[in-house]
Design a protein around this nucleic acid. Structure first.
Lengths: 159, 159
DNA sequence: TTTTACTTGATACTCAGTAACAGGTATTCT
DNA sequence: AGAATACCTGTTACTGAGTATCAAGTAAAA
């Protein structure tokens, strides 16, 4: 499992220069599953404070454009990034209380999505599918959820 | 179709004071299908400049908490808000080039989502499902898409 | 009528980036 | 090797989308 090496390989093939800053950023990124941009900045700068915030952001968009990293807007909290290179496409399930994120695959849905898009004359290029709920242990703990939902739903939980 | 009246009804029932500012904001909100916060601010202040940006934001979160308005993070552009009160749940299909947003219903998916969540011990409370692609007329217009996708995908389009 | 609770606008701040630009480092060309 | 070019980086400043604080105003309740 040396994802880092194959990622740098891909960058080289795309003619993207692999500077020491980018190497460090990549090394830190593959080390997290889901991370916010600001988290990555802190993480990188803790190791080498001379790397600027800008470079982290720039590298992040670079990697996104190269299709190696994906950005996910979850409903709660900041956007999360994820190194998707070498991973199969997957959807996300998030616990609204503790914030746990689970990745799951559901390939059966893809033809249906394709079909739905086609109904409106669209060609489908990508999609995001996110489920929100309560994980097993959070279901047991009553009280105010950390990440609030519309009243209606909250009532459902408490009941 | 007087959605405004029933919305204000709901607010009254929830004990939310219906001030003149909130009334104006609501009136403008139901007038748009999808709107960004900043758009709504401009729209409201064009009519009554004494209403502050803050009040618009506060009202927006108020309405979200009451379950009357939903916020959607699309991959391209700012977050969009939508008055969902009185509308059935729906998913979204967005054109990556022109930004058109189509709402569609796919109730057959819901039990499957329920099931996926259950597999991980989760109780499902809500979900977002967004499809991205090119609409009919944008498919014909070659050239650089306005809203860029990872290289891999763009190649697919052009090919 | 007075107290209390809710609303509002002003100001300042945060978080997640983007833009502009000058200086530095690689690459490539000759 | 040296010059020209392209690519990278850090600094500073800015924007967009909000959040936090607070004082003043307004409405509701006691």
């Amino acid at each position: 499992m040396n994802r880092l090496i194959s990622v740098t390989q891909v960058l080289k093939e795309k003619g993207i220069r692999l500077t020491s800053e980018r190497q460090l950023i990549l090394r830190r990124a593959v080390n997290h599953l889901h991370f916010s941009a600001e988290e990555l900045v802190k993480d990188v700068r803790r190791i080498d404070a001379s790397v600027s915030r800008m470079t982290v952001f720039r590298t992040l968009t670079l990697l996104q454009d190269a299709g190696l990293v994906e950005k996910h807007d979850f409903r709660y909290g900041p956007p999360y990034y994820e190194v998707t290179y070498g991973k199969a496409h997957h959807d996300h399930l998030m616990c609204m209380r503790c914030g746990e994120i689970i990745e799951f695959q559901e390939p059966r849905w893809e033809p249906m999505q394709e079909q739905a898009a086609k109904r409106y004359g669209y060609t489908l290029l990508s999609h995001t599918h996110k489920l929100y709920g309560l994980c097993g242990s959070c279901q047991k703990q009553h009280g105010t959820p950390i990440r609030k939902e519309p009243e209606l739903h909250v009532e459902e939980i408490v009941a």
